[in-house]
Amino acid sequence: MPLLLMLWFSVVVPKNTIMIKGAAPGVSDPATPVPEDGRVAERRYRNDYFGLSYPIPAGWSEQPAGPPPSDGGSYVLAQFATSRAYVLVTAQDLFFTPRPVANAKELLAAVRSRLDAHFEIESEPREVTIAGRTFHRFAYKAPHSGLHWHVLTTDARCHALTFTFAGTDLAALDAAEAGLQALSLHRDAPRCVSSYDAIVKKSDPTFTTQHFNTIPVRVIIGKDGRVKHIHLLSAFPEQSAAIIDALKTWRFAPNEDEIETGLVFGR
């Protein structure tokens, strides 16, 4: 075969690329924003799902993207860093916490209660106001490494949205935390209902392969009781297809609001 023809037919697997997916997020429609779809533009991190616009601290750079949403409802939305400090932007879907947590305050209290004894508390969890919103702030440090953590979390559309400022450069952390005042976080959103059981009609999805995994599914239910939007946080492709097909046939009682809720399939 002539060399050019051989090159034409040559296929090379891309390097450093995840080509073959296991359990992964999925959606019923690509137009509706989902939590993991943030982006950086004009030195701000923007997230349409949360209606979030966060100014990246001056001189800090975007770090490698985090993992996909977990089957426990956790998201790593973004990370920005300077040499010895970083901010990690995360969200925990309150529908899917393995142990019941009602809000961001309770989640932070749980983190505080589990903190290993040898960490030193710099500031117990307390309520603060940032950019006109209620946040809960907790600060601690590690005695040997000199690492500090300033954790600020707020309730945002069925999630605890958290900014964790961490590192050994305390001045950089303080400055970055102060910059949080310039964020904006607002969006008209459906009403969050953690356990919405006004189901009128349902059919269970049929899985052809058994994985025994947990499949968290966030749904938006229209005022007419139909499922408007389906977001699977972690599901194998055949599971996504089966669940989306099934949920499209579900009917809930009509409601005066749009409802956002969580369903768990699988284990």
């Binding site: 916490t97 961490a166 058994q210 972690s234």
Partner: peptide, 23 residues
């Protein structure tokens, strides 16, 4: 243990691989 680290300040989640036979 997996449940104990929910909400951690590091972005770590994790899950389990499971036997396709008995789960």
């Amino acid at each position: 243990f997996k449940n104990s680290i929910v909400g951690n300040s590091l972005g770590i989640a994790g899950t389990f691989n499971r036997s396709g036979n008995d789960g």
